[in-house]
């Protein structure tokens, strides 16, 4: 009864005194509406099935200078291939990748056609745009332009179709772009970048606690040649792409890897549950 009396007393007091007072609770922003995309699992990824997420995506990533043994070739028959990247590693790092709108970055004026930026690792950003035809790579730039030795900016005269839509097994692109007026690590650079991109297979990809099926395997060989007569750098990478999720596994080889089915990964980044 004590509680009852107290409740009634307070209630009456409150009702008499606070008829016109303001609410201490603000009106909330409407809950964020996530982009609607439901995989149809038809083995073909169209432009509208590659969402440029406004929310962060979480990944498990191998630490720098740690090599992971991978089987990028997979097991099973072509078309029903399985790639197992489900092993959990104690030293994996949680990383969050958030595409950001191009605009405030120091290099933004140099990429007027770019739309958004993704952290490419190594202190670099990759500048992209997307339309119905492809996900276009416009170049790379360092996060900061000072000190001068940290400044990198590579702008392609024509964008590279990192993923050409619709993404389907059999897609092949071999693009070479000339680089002029670039700066890498504070030094001027002239040369070429070549991208050999192949959508080579489809199948099931296992990451910790999640299986994606069908995911498409995208093999990329990026070759940078410094002119005149400079060094050549080759980086092989494998991406496994799934409808609505985008890249669920990314694997980079060591520099100048020659084996297309390399088994030692300098970087392995995998989708993880949030």
């Amino acid at each position: 009864m004590k509680h009852l009396k107290l409740t009634l007393l307070l209630a009456v007091c409150a009702s008499l005194s606070a008829a016109c007072d303001g609410n201490q609770t603000p009106i909330a922003d409407p809950p964020p509406t996530s982009q609607s995309c439901v995989p149809n699992r038809d083995g073909i990824i169209s432009a509208d099935e590659v969402l440029i997420a406004t929310e962060s995506a979480q990944y498990l990533q191998s630490p720098p200078s740690v090599t992971r043994t991978v089987n990028g070739a997979g097991t099973g028959e072509s078309g029903a291939r399985k790639w197992d990247f489900a092993t959990e590693y104690a030293d994996d790092q949680d990383v969050t990748v958030t595409p950001t709108r191009l605009g405030a970055q120091w290099y933004a004026p140099q990429f007027t056609e770019g739309q958004f930026v993704v952290d490419a690792g190594g202190g670099l950003d990759a500048i992209y745009s997307k339309d119905d035809r492809a996900l276009w790579l416009w170049g790379t730039a360092s996060h900061v332009d000072t000190p001068a030795s940290a400044k990198t900016i590579v702008r392609y005269p024509t964008p590279v179709p990192a993923l050409r839509f619709p993404i389907a097994v059999g897609n092949v692109d071999d693009i070479t772009v000339a680089i002029t007026g670039a700066t890498i690590a504070g030094l001027p650079f002239v040369g070429t970048d070549r991208y050999q991109i192949t959508v080579s297979d489809a199948g099931r990809v296992d990451v910790p606690y999640v299986r994606f099926s069908p995911a498409l395997k995208v093999s990329t060989v990026a070759t940078r040649v410094a002119n005149p007569g400079g060094a050549t750098f080759v980086r092989r990478s494998l991406s496994f792409v799934f409808e609505c999720f985008g890249e669920v596994v990314h694997i980079d080889s060591a520099l100048n890897e020659t084996n297309p089915d390399f088994t030692n990964a300098a970087l392995m980044r995998r989708f993880r549950l949030p």
């Binding site: 439901v38 995989p39 799934f242 999720f245």
Partner: peptide
């Protein structure tokens, strides 16, 4: 438990 077609949760 996953609601997303093609993205199975293995637990």
């Amino acid at each position: 438990p996953s609601l997303v077609p093609g993205a199975e949760i293995t637990q």
